[in-house]
């Protein structure tokens, strides 16, 4: 349609593109602020005026991962010289890293991060696994009341977490699943299962039935056709669904806040609890947030062509 382009249209186009660039900068500014604060020296995080450009510093990450105390007196020069470079940076800041013998005492962050990883990965595998089978069932077989069943499945996704959490908390307390990985995994599977069924059904519907029918004619059983023909065809869809489920479980806050407090606590309720009382150390919080957001940012780029499908439960595909 390049035929007629008036000069006013060209001008309008330029203005629109300029506006897009400004909007992008505005939308990315808070994310830049998190990422940059994670590399700031403590005093620059709360400087007036706010610091935009600075020499990056690694101490926020050292502080994030270690337990430290304020030093009462200056450090022995010999000890200082023998310390690794990152530890020297902590001494310079007037703190000492706590150790048992030679071992650095770790903060709770690595544990919480691992909990997030364990819970998100296992719940994703289960939700996507079950969802793939169920989606195939809904895609290929006649089911009485199919629309109602699919609505029922989707409606479980829409339940407000706090509403579900009240009875689940009581039931978990009765069977000792409070503050356990399994308890949280079950909740996340229940939460992601409906999403996984809907999204996978969209992908399954796109695989031509003729493929399996040809295989059945060639002597495959339906199970063989499912595993050898359908699953490989659905690989992209399974991967996209898995990434979405992972991100949802990774980001989830309300269930984790209510159901876990120590052993199985994940990063989202832990990071805000670091604020504590008094003046918060924003660089350390930013470092924890930065590491926590990084996988999601990477996954967003990998998923970019499936985002629309993902956020509409597979209903709108472009």
């Amino acid at each position: 349609m390049a035929a007629v382009r008036t000069s006013s249209e060209v001008a309008l186009n330029r203005v629109a593109i300029a506006a897009v660039l400004v909007a992008t900068l505005v939308f990315l500014a808070p994310i830049y602020w998190i990422a940059s604060t994670a590399f700031k020296p403590k005093e620059l995080a709360v400087s007036v005026p706010p610091t935009v450009l600075f020499e990056p510093e690694v101490t926020p990450f050292v502080r994030l991962f270690t337990k430290r105390v304020q030093m009462q007196k200056t450090v022995d020069p010999q000890v200082y010289d023998a310390a690794p470079w990152w530890e020297k940076r902590i001494y310079d800041g007037g703190e000492r890293v706590l150790k048992v013998g030679k071992d650095v005492q770790l903060s709770q962050y690595p544990d919480r991060f691992m909990n997030s990883l364990i819970v998100a990965v296992i719940s994703t595998v289960l939700a996507v696994g079950m969802g793939t089978f169920t989606a195939y069932g809904f895609s290929r077989f006649k089911i009485a009341g199919e629309a109602d069943l699919l609505f029922f499945i989707l409606s479980t996704r829409m339940l407000p977490p706090v509403v579900v959490a009240i009875p689940m908390f009581l039931m978990y307390r009765a069977v000792g699943l409070n503050d356990s990985h399994i308890g949280l995994i079950i909740l996340y599977v229940a939460f992601n299962l409906s999403f996984s069924v809907w999204l996978m059904k969209g992908f399954m519907d796109e695989i031509p039935k003729e493929y399996e029918e040809a295989a059945l004619v060639d002597g495959y059983t339906r199970m063989q056709a499912f595993f050898k023909i359908v699953l490989p065809e659905a690989a992209t869809g399974i991967a996209a669904t898995a990434v979405f489920c992972f991100i949802t479980a990774w980001n989830e806050y309300a269930f984790a806040l209510i159901m876990t407090n120590r052993r199985a606590q994940t990063a989202p309720p832990f990071i805000p609890s670091q604020i504590g009382s008094g003046l918060p150390d924003w660089t350390t919080i930013a470092a924890g947030t930065f590491l926590f957001l990084l996988p999601v940012a990477i996954f967003t780029f990998l998923l970019r062509n499936h985002l629309l499908r993902g956020v509409t439960f597979g209903a709108i595909r472009k």
Partner: peptide
């Protein structure tokens, strides 16, 4: 640019919301 603009909605509301305090 479209993907960059989509980043905020993919992130944890609790964690990012906390940072908006700063």
């Amino acid at each position: 640019i479209t993907t960059l603009l989509l980043l905020p909605m993919m992130m944890s509301a609790a964690v990012v919301g906390l940072f908006w305090q700063l």
